[in-house]
Computed example of a mutant assay.
Amino acid sequence: MAAHVAMLRGHQRPDAPLLLTLFPPRPQPGQSVGFSRYFRTTAGQVLEADPELLAGIEAATREAPSHSLGLVVNAALPQPPDWGSQPDHFPIRRIRKGQPLTAAEQQAYQAERCELWNSGRREGWCAPKQWGASIEHIGPCRWLFAECDREGFPKSDQLALAAAVFGAPPTFSIDTGGKSAHCYYRLSRPVPPADWARLQALVIGAYGQLEPAASVDGSLKKPNQVMRLAGGIHPRTGALATIHTATGTLVDPAALEQHLQALQPPPHLNRRGHCCRPALPPPCAAAASRRCGRSPITWPPSRAASRAMAPMPATAAPTATETSSGAW
Rank of each mutant, 00 (worst) to 15 (best):
P282L: 03
T176Q: 00
Q225W: 03
K97L: 14
G56A: 14
Q130D: 12
T319S: 15
C114G: 10
K221D: 15
H268N: 13
C276P: 01
A262T: 03
N224F: 03
K129Y: 09
P128K: 08
T42G: 07
P283Q: 06
H259T: 04
D157Q: 10
G70A: 11
S219W: 06
V226Q: 01
L159I: 15
E257R: 08
I135S: 14
A162E: 01
A316N: 01
A6N: 10
A181I: 03
K129L: 12
R13S: 13
P14R: 12
A162H: 04
R198D: 14
R272S: 13
A133S: 12
S36R: 14
F90G: 04
A255N: 09
L101K: 15
A241Q: 00
E105Q: 14
R121W: 09
P190W: 03
S306W: 00
E63D: 12
P313C: 01
P278Y: 02
C275D: 09
R303F: 02
F145Y: 12
Y184F: 14
A111P: 07
T176K: 01
G120R: 03
P282E: 03
T298Q: 12
W299R: 02
V216G: 03
V46P: 00
P80W: 09
L47K: 13
G124K: 13
R13L: 14
T102M: 08
P281S: 08
D149N: 14
Q28M: 15
E48V: 09
R26K: 14
A75S: 13
V73D: 02
E123W: 11
P266E: 05
G152F: 06
D82M: 07
I204A: 07
Q79I: 09
P266V: 07
C141Q: 07
A246F: 09
E105R: 08
G139K: 08
A160I: 07
V191S: 02
L22I: 07
L161K: 02
L53E: 05
W328Q: 08
A262S: 04
I138P: 05
Q200M: 04
L18Y: 07
H234Q: 11
S324F: 06
G231M: 03
D157I: 12
P311V: 01
C114K: 09
T42H: 07
D149K: 13
A246V: 11
H259A: 10
Y184L: 05
L220T: 06
G248Q: 04
A241V: 00
Q107K: 14
T42A: 10
I135A: 11
I233E: 10
V72F: 10
L199I: 05
R113F: 08
Y38R: 10
V165W: 00
S68I: 05
G273Q: 01
P265V: 01
E112M: 11
G124Y: 11
Q12S: 10
L269C: 03
G218F: 15
A287L: 15
D50Y: 02
E322Y: 08
T242G: 02
G70D: 06
G238R: 06
A64Q: 12
A308Q: 13
G84W: 08
A162M: 03
I95W: 15
G34L: 08
Q12D: 15
C292R: 08
H274F: 12
